[in-house]
Amino acid sequence: MKRLVLVALVALALGGCATTAPYGNFVQPPVTVDQQQLAGDAAKQLAALWPPAKTRFELQQPTPDEFGAALVGNLRSSGYAVLEYAPQKASGAGNATPEQKDADPVVVVTPTTVALPLRYVLDHDAGTGLYRLTLLVGSQSITRPYLEQNRVLIPAGYWVRKE
């Protein structure tokens, strides 16, 4: 019986690794806390782990929310090159008109450094009042909890890094 329970737990754990998690800002509006402060804290932690001016980040998700826009701004002002999210579009070369086929070819410049994929998850647990910010950089992640006090989010713990 114990073996069956152990096998079931291992299967559930591996199944969780195989699924893709959603990314983005899951804090429900109206938001009363300053998410720009969170973005500044996130940029400082990224700078401590990945040096600015030597690191490029490529966002793997759209950033239409307040936190995402602030994060991009903070990363750029810290010295990072940030490639914003652009979903891959199907090539329309097969549907080109004769005038387009005769036009000069587009020169594609490949970057000299590889960009690290960057995603984030910001969520809130109404039961505990805690906010959680997770930044996923490549295959690593860093997470920090925050607690709301007087409409300001203060760290409720240390940054935790998972490699």
Rank of each mutant, 00 (worst) to 15 (best):
T128M: 04
L4F: 08
P117D: 06
T113C: 01
N95Y: 11
K162A: 14
A70N: 03
L6H: 11
F26W: 03
A156L: 02
V5L: 14
L133N: 03
A21M: 12
L136I: 15
G129V: 01
V31P: 02
R144D: 04
G127K: 09
V107D: 05
D102W: 06
L38W: 02
Y158C: 00
K44P: 00
E148L: 04
E58T: 14
T20C: 06
T112F: 04
P111L: 12
A47G: 04
I154A: 10
D102M: 11
L135S: 01
V108Y: 11
N74M: 09
S141D: 08
A43I: 06
K162I: 11
Y158L: 07
L122D: 02
T55P: 00
V33L: 00
V33I: 12
A156F: 00
N74H: 13
L133S: 07
P29R: 13
E163A: 15
D123R: 14
A42G: 02
N25F: 04
P64R: 01
Y158E: 08
G157F: 08
D41Q: 14
Y158P: 02
P64G: 03
L118H: 09
G24K: 00
T134F: 03
E99F: 14
Q149Y: 10
G138H: 03
T112V: 09
N95D: 14
D34T: 08
Q35C: 07
N150V: 10
A21Q: 13
P155S: 04
F67G: 03
L135R: 02
A18E: 11
C17Q: 15
G24M: 02
T97G: 11
T55V: 05
T112E: 15
G92M: 12
W50R: 15
V109Q: 12
P87R: 01
N25E: 12
